[in-house]
């Protein structure tokens, strides 16, 4: 059992999480602990279960066994989860997707305001005010009245970040946020993420951006075949990986 003092500073705790699709085990007994304000990067080959792990954290995927705690809110895999609990759980974990998933029928401002009104119960005026502040923060104040289709991929992803931040989450989950973007557009997204990290946001980032993982993350997790192969300070893993499989993966991504 964790001591109360450390428990306070733990933002996300995954305890022996298992996820199966039929016979296929996607997550095999994964445990992971993220401290408040920590930036954790998860890397590894595709099919390693990185995205599934992230999606389990905010219960977009229901694990088959194990326990998931986010900002003190614990959910056991087997137990019934009421809708109210589910909403409470997701509110504290903001999620940014690879494919942005902005709402195409709403303008940029409404994209950010909608959940504030429906989930937080803010008035339209208050929500829009907050949305404008967030748009300003991601450098897109001038896009408020545009529709997402009129924005570049990089802009859309920054809007998606603002949309997630609007619910004032305790942690932010990023699922390959730059993988669908041109390298140059990816940079503007990474810059916003870097700022967030500097401001002390707790972040879990599934990524293929090794430079970002190296420079920004405090803790690096290498996943292979549904399990954590190794984890530790990024500098250490990049300079002397503990496993041959990690070495092979790093060589493949760094030498291309």
């Amino acid at each position: 059992m964790t001591l109360p003092a450390t428990r306070q500073s733990v933002a996300i705790e995954l305890d022996s999480v298992v996820k199966r699709y039929g016979d296929h085990t996607v997550l095999d007994n994964v445990s992971l602990s993220v401290r408040e304000g920590e930036v954790v990067a998860i890397i590894g080959p595709s099919g390693a279960g990185k995205s599934t792990l992230l999606r389990c954290i905010n219960l977009l995927e229901r694990p088959d066994s194990g326990r998931i705690t986010v900002a003190g809110h614990a959910v056991d895999a087997g137990s019934e989860i009421s809708n109210k609990e589910l909403v409470a759980h997701r509110r504290v974990a903001g999620m940014v997707f690879q494919s942005f998933n902005l709402f195409p029928h709403l303008d940029v401002l409404r994209n950010i305001s909608l959940a504030q009104e429906r989930v937080l119960g803010r008035s339209r005026k208050d929500a829009d005010k907050r949305s404008k502040e967030l748009l300003d923060r991601v450098g897109l104040a001038d896009k408020a009245a545009q529709y997402p289709s009129r924005c570049s991929g990089g802009q859309q992803q920054r809007i998606a970040i603002a949309r997630a931040l609007a619910l004032e989450p305790k942690v932010m989950l990023f699922d390959e946020p730059t993988s669908a973007l041109d390298p140059e557009l990816g940079l503007e997204v990474l810059a916003v993420m870097r700022e967030l990290a500097d401001e002390g946001m707790t972040m879990v980032v599934v990524t293929h951006e090794m430079q970002f993982a190296r420079d920004v993350s405090d803790h690096l997790v290498v996943m292979v075949d549904g399990a954590v192969l190794e984890e530790g300070p990024p500098e250490e893993i990049f300079s002397k990986p503990g496993h041959e499989r990690t070495r092979r993966f790093l060589r493949a991504v760094l030498e291309r």
Binding site: L60, R90, A93, F97, L102, L114, R118, V119, A164
Partner: peptide, 30 residues
């Protein structure tokens, strides 16, 4: 309607009714 629309609204903590009436429904009508 792409699954991402359901997922994004779920991740934002929206309930099924809001997802239908505010996110997916208007797009279906269109």
């Amino acid at each position: 309607i792409p699954a991402g629309q359901w997922e994004a609204s779920a991740a934002l903590g929206m309930g099924h009714r809001d997802q239908l009436s505010k996110v997916v429904g208007p797009q279906v009508l269109r």
